[in-house]
Design a protein around this nucleic acid. Structure first.
Length: 288
DNA sequence: AAGACGTGGGC
DNA sequence: TGCCCAAGTCT
């Protein structure tokens, strides 16, 4: 397998988007917040929310001092609101266990609530310049095509980390660039549908292209239907709680017109179980 | 370890 | 319309 790093580095230097978290001195807290927001939410939707968040809470302790409800409300419509809860918990943990400094060590990062294999390495690499493989869905797709000759990656696996590590240069700085370049290439050129191979710096050494760009099938899990789902009901409940001018709403009034009353009750119960809502004396509200 | 978990945009 | 997709994590 030829060395992917040189063309990736040259391409990234010319084509990287100017994203807030790539600005010099953006800070590890900003990077951590951005990574939470970017978990399954597109870049363009994240940017305005990220800037508002950091303006309101410039350090972990600023966020930790607030009630979780404020984090959930500020999260607005970014989706997967448990991430707001987890980010709040992580802020408390960083304040209490790390002196209000986002850790640089992967294992310390992994111990934070809501931080998994991807986010831990992304923060260590992009905020602190450490040398680790960073593997997200973009990286996995580029590896699947350029290295394995497949149209789509298989299911996520710890082996992905070793595969990415194998193409990283020894130098820390160059390794960080290759990590970012793989993600950027997957996001802007080597996309899931209609990849722009004519603009790809790896096209001349791509195993998938060499094999004639075969459709090797999709190893991706199909997403459950959203329309009519419990998730949709949960989303509707939480939207009411976020928008409530009084921070507490009569339980019976929350999406009272929902078509399926059992689903409505299930949604409320599960939100309470998740810590995203609290009920008391016939009222429902975001967690204090 | 397969499924749950929001939301919005593209085609 | 309906399905796919988006810098994942947790149970």
């Amino acid at each position: 397998m030829p060395d992917l790093a040189p063309p990736l580095i040259a391409w990234y230097r010319e084509n990287a988007r100017d994203l807030p978290w790539r600005r010099p001195g953006f800070g590890a807290w900003g990077v951590l917040v951005s990574e939470f927001m970017l978990q399954q939410t597109p870049v363009n939707r994240v940017i305005p929310h990220l800037e508002a968040w950091l303006e309101r809470w410039p350090t972990p302790a600023d966020l930790a001092a607030e009630a979780p409800a404020e984090a959930v409300r500020q999260w607005a419509n970014l989706g997967y609101p448990r991430r707001a809860l987890w980010l709040h918990r992580a802020a408390v943990e960083i304040r209490d266990r790390h002196g209000n400094v986002v850790p640089s060590d992967v294992d310390a990062l992994l111990a934070l609530t809501g931080v998994g294999d991807y986010t831990a390495r992304a923060v260590s690499v992009f905020a602190y310049g450490m040398r680790h493989p960073v593997v997200d869905t973009n990286t996995r797709r580029v590896l699947a095509r350029a290295v394995d000759g497949r149209s789509q990656p298989g299911p996520p696996s710890r082996r992905d980390l070793a595969a990415m590590d194998a193409i990283l240069p020894h130098d820390d700085t160059e390794a960080a660039i290759v990590n970012a370049a793989m993600m950027e290439l997957g996001a802007t050129v080597c996309t899931a549908r209609a990849p722009r191979c004519a603009a790809c710096p790896l096209a001349h050494m791509c195993a998938w292209r060499a094999a004639g760009s075969p459709d090797t099938g999709d190893g991706r899990r199909k997403q459950a239907r959203y329309e009519g789902s419990d998730r949709q009901a949960r989303g509707a409940v939480l939207r009411v709680l976020r928008h409530a001018t009084v921070h507490s709403v009569p339980l019976d009034a929350v999406i009272a017109d929902w078509p399926d009353p059992l689903q409505r009750d299930r949604a409320i119960d599960s939100l309470i179980a998740d810590g995203l809502a609290e009920a008391s004396e016939g009222m429902l509200r975001l967690p204090r």
